[in-house]
Amino acid sequence: MRFIVTSLLCLLLTACQIDPYTHQPTWTGTDWFDAGKEDAMNGVAVKSNQSLAANFNDPKVDRSEYLSGYKEGQEKICQENFVYAWGLAGRIFPASCDTADNNSKLREAWQHGMKEGTQASRLN
């Protein structure tokens, strides 16, 4: 009986061994398009190549892909109703909209949202 329990325990313990190289992730590189899109949608200004290389630990910055993604993110965020909501929430004007074509209208919408948000917080 003791032999069966011991052998069963040894079998159980050896079955739990994990090969550390089996599930090793593969490095695919940085998706510069997504990095640019993410920066724009977070309201961040365009970053330099040196800053991007340091942030992503990838010296091969694809500037054109980053700027393409940034432009797409900028198109999504730089809309009057969106920046109005940012102002209403008390967030600063997104730096990614500073270079937008309709910058003055966006700033007006954001300022209107800031004003309304401030008034609403005073009433509460």
Rank of each mutant, 00 (worst) to 15 (best):
C78V: 02
E72K: 10
P94S: 06
D98G: 11
G73W: 01
V5W: 06
F56Q: 04
L9P: 06
M41K: 09
S51F: 05
S48T: 15
T14M: 13
F3H: 15
E80C: 01
N103G: 07
A100M: 03
W110D: 05
K47E: 09
E116T: 14
G43K: 00
N124A: 11
Q119E: 14
D98M: 12
E80K: 12
A40Q: 00
A109D: 01
C10Y: 10
C10N: 00
T14H: 09
Q111W: 09
R63A: 12
L12G: 06
S51G: 02
E75N: 15
E72Y: 02
L123A: 15
C78Y: 05
C10G: 11
A35S: 11
L9W: 07
T99A: 15
F93E: 04
Y66E: 03
S104N: 13
K105V: 04
N81K: 14
C97A: 07
T22E: 14
A40H: 05
C10T: 12
F3W: 11
D98K: 10
K60H: 14
T118M: 14
F3D: 14
A53N: 05
D62L: 06
R63G: 03
S7Q: 03
W86H: 10
E108I: 12
V46T: 03
V83F: 04
K76W: 08
G36E: 01
F56M: 00
F93H: 08
E72N: 08
G69W: 05
K115A: 12
Q24V: 13
E65R: 10
L52E: 04
R107M: 13
M114W: 11
Y21P: 02
L123N: 13
A45E: 13
D62S: 09
I92Y: 13
L67S: 01
L9M: 13
A15P: 06
T6R: 07
A95Y: 08
G87C: 11
V83Q: 04
I4M: 07
Y70H: 03
N102G: 11
W27E: 03
A95S: 14
W86V: 03
A54V: 10
R63E: 12
G113D: 00
G69A: 02
Q50L: 08
H112V: 10
L12A: 13
L8Q: 05
Q24T: 12
L9Y: 04
L12P: 04
V83E: 01
N42V: 00
Q24N: 05
V83S: 03
W110F: 12
L52Y: 00
A100L: 08
D98F: 04
E65H: 09
K115Y: 11
L8F: 11
A89M: 11
G43W: 03
G69L: 04
D62H: 08
T6E: 05
C97E: 06
Y70V: 07
R107C: 01
F3M: 12
L11K: 07
K76P: 00
T26C: 04
L8K: 02
N124H: 12
T22I: 07
F56V: 04
S64D: 10
R122A: 15
P59D: 03
